[in-house]
Computed example of a mutant assay.
Amino acid sequence: MTKTDIRPVRLHPGQTDSANRALSRVRNYLESHRDRTEITVSVEDGEPEPLTLPREVVELLAGMLAHLGAGRGVSIVPADAELTTQQAADMLNVSRPFLVGLLDAGEIEYRTVGTHRRIKASSLMKYKQEDDRGRRAAADELTQLGQEMGLM
C-alpha cells in the first residue's frame, strides 16, 4: 500500500487571482454545457494538444480552484486510503487524543495493524458528514428558539 500524503497544497497570495479567473471560466463552461459527460480542454505546451476529461474530474478541479482561490489549502485523499490517527486528527482539525476517544467510543470505524490504528478516509468522511449534519440541526434549532423568544 502506498503512503498517503495529506499535506495541503497552498497557493502564494499572488496566485489566488489566477485560480479565481480559472474557476470562473470552468464554472461558466460547466453551467453552459450541462449535458456533457466528457470535456475536452486544450493543453498548450508547444503544440496545442486536446485532453479529454470526465465531467466529474472537471467538477473536482472547480472545487479545488474555489478553495485555492479563497486562500485555503487543498489535499486529495483517495476514499480507500488508510490514515494514521495523526493524519485523521489533522483532517478533522482535532487533537490526536480526541480522535482516539472517538475511535474507542465506536464513532469512527477503524482497524488495527499490530498496535496501530488505521482509519479509512471514507469512514472519516462519513463521520464528518454526520457530525456536520448534527451541528447544522442544532444551530437551526437554536435559531428557531431564538426567534420564538423574540431574540432575533
Results as ranks from 00 to 15, higher is better:
Thr37Asn: 12
Ala70Gln: 14
Val41Phe: 03
Pro97Val: 14
Val57Thr: 12
Leu60Ile: 11
Ile119Cys: 04
Gly73His: 07
Asn28Pro: 00
Arg34Thr: 15
Asp17Gly: 13
Val43Trp: 01
Val74Met: 03
Gly73Val: 10
Thr52Gly: 02
Leu60Val: 12
Glu38Asp: 15
Leu142Gln: 13
Thr112Val: 09
Arg133Gln: 14
Thr143Val: 13
Gln144Ala: 15
Arg27Leu: 03
Glu44Cys: 06
Thr52Ser: 14
Asp35Phe: 05
Ala89Asn: 09
Ala137Asp: 09
His12Gly: 06
Ala105Gln: 14
His12Asp: 10
Ala139Cys: 05
Asp132Leu: 11
Arg21Lys: 13
Ser24Asp: 04
Asp90Glu: 13
Leu53Arg: 10
Leu145His: 15
Leu53Ser: 04
Asp140Glu: 12
Glu47Met: 02
Thr40Ile: 08
Thr40Gln: 08
Arg27Phe: 00
Ile119Arg: 06
Gln87Pro: 01
Arg55Thr: 14
Met125Val: 13
Leu65Thr: 11
Ala81Phe: 02
Ala137Val: 14
Tyr110Gln: 12
Thr143Arg: 13
Ala139Asp: 03
Ser123Lys: 04
Glu107Pro: 02
Arg27Val: 07
Ala89Ser: 06
Glu31Cys: 09
Ser24Ala: 07
Glu44Val: 15
Pro78Val: 07
Thr52His: 01
Ile108His: 03
Val113Arg: 15
Tyr127Asn: 03
Glu141Ile: 12
Glu44Trp: 03
Arg55Ile: 11
His12Met: 05
Gly69Asp: 02
Ile76Met: 00
Pro78Ser: 12
Lys126Gln: 15
Val100Trp: 00
Ile108Ala: 09
Arg136Ser: 07
Gln15Ala: 14
Glu109His: 07
Gly69Leu: 00
Ala66His: 11
Asn93Trp: 01
Gly114Lys: 13
Arg96Tyr: 02
Glu56Asp: 05
Gly63Met: 10
Asp140Ala: 13
Lys126Arg: 15
Glu47Arg: 15
Arg133Cys: 02
Thr85Lys: 04
Asp132Arg: 11
Gly14Val: 09
Val77Gly: 04
Glu82Leu: 09
Ala19Leu: 01
Glu109Cys: 00
Thr52Gln: 08
Arg36Ala: 13
Ser75Asp: 08
Val100Arg: 11
Leu83Phe: 07
Arg136Asn: 02
Val113Ser: 11
Gln15Asn: 11
Leu83Pro: 02
Ile119Pro: 03
Glu31Val: 15
Asn93Tyr: 01
Asn28Lys: 15
Tyr127Gly: 01
Ala139Val: 15
Glu44Ala: 14
Asp35Thr: 14
Ala137His: 06
